[in-house]
């Protein structure tokens, strides 16, 4: 919709504030994501990471500050509008259509994105463009083999992948992944990382994650959030080397 300016950041957050009563969950957050960046947002439990994502997607309204998408102010846009503009998220708590098949889950998202959801005749199965799009997405996420399974028959790791596929079906320009590795067995983590590294390179990806091995192998830049405020932002090496980060967050972990 808006003109894409190559010089504009994909997402630009300036001076964002949010309080829940007396609790300051977002304090003067400034964050910029360039197109195609792989950015991680880390911080202890309750640091305000999910709350920040909720403000970016429009589920929560910030008390102050602005959010821009390719230069366009979207601070007051509805969640639906932001999805249409390309701001898409996955959920910390997986939210899927359990009694539908994997392909139907993805098909639903594609139908919604193409405004097919009100068409009371025909079938997605006979729509070559939809079927091809579903196949391409499932292929990208290694889910082709389970296309016919109901989501509730899948393990946690594969459900995470369906969740990501659903987000990709909405053609995001900015993709927010809220703890994609939560609940995924260590056995499946390698597969998840490999798939994350295969995400389309033009999408700006912000990943919230507690698993540091995944963060260090995925992200180019890292932002550390503590108590709602920005502690450090920098490259992976800078953040790993930062003494404050070691103190508040990573200090206890042997492998840093």
């Amino acid at each position: 919709m808006s003109e894409h300016n190559a010089n504009q950041p994909a997402l630009e957050i300036t001076g964002l504030y949010k309080n829940f009563g007396a609790l300051k969950v977002t304090q003067d957050i400034n964050l910029t994501l360039q197109p195609g960046v792989r950015h991680a947002l880390i911080g202890p439990n309750g640091a305000g990471k999910t709350t920040l994502v909720n403000q970016i997607t429009g589920v929560l309204k910030p008390d102050a500050g602005t959010i821009r998408l390719f230069g366009t102010d979207i601070t007051n846009a509805t969640p639906e509008k932001r999805v249409a503009l390309g701001v898409v998220r996955t959920f910390q708590i997986i939210s899927l259509f359990l009694r539908l098949t994997v392909a139907e889950n993805i098909g639903l998202a594609i139908a919604a994105a193409q405004s097919l959801d009100a068409k009371p005749w025909g079938s997605l199965r006979d729509d070559d463009r939809v079927v091809d799009a579903v196949r391409a997405l499932l292929e990208r996420l290694d889910l082709l083999g389970v296309a016919e399974r109901k989501v509730r028959e899948l393990g946690y790791g594969q459900r995470r992948l369906v969740e990501i596929a659903l987000a990709l079906a909405l053609k995001p320009k900015v993709l927010l992944l809220d703890e994609p590795a939560a609940g995924v067995s260590s056995h499946d983590l390698g597969m998840l990382l490999e798939i994350l590294n295969r995400l389309p390179s033009d999408i700006a990806v912000l990943v919230i994650e507690h698993d540091m091995s995944l963060v260090f192998r995925f992200a180019e830049r890292i932002t550390v959030l503590v108590g709602g405020a920005l502690l450090v932002e920098g490259s992976v090496d800078e953040v790993r080397a930062d003494q404050r980060v070691r103190d508040v967050y990573l200090g206890r972990r042997a492998y840093v």
């Binding site: 259509f97 359990l98 009694r99 539908l100 098909g107 639903l108 009100a118 068409k119 009371p120």
Partner: peptide
């Protein structure tokens, strides 16, 4: 139809 699938999605 796509509408029917959407309806099942809303139910879920």
């Amino acid at each position: 139809s796509p509408f029917g699938l959407t309806i099942r999605g809303i139910r879920e």
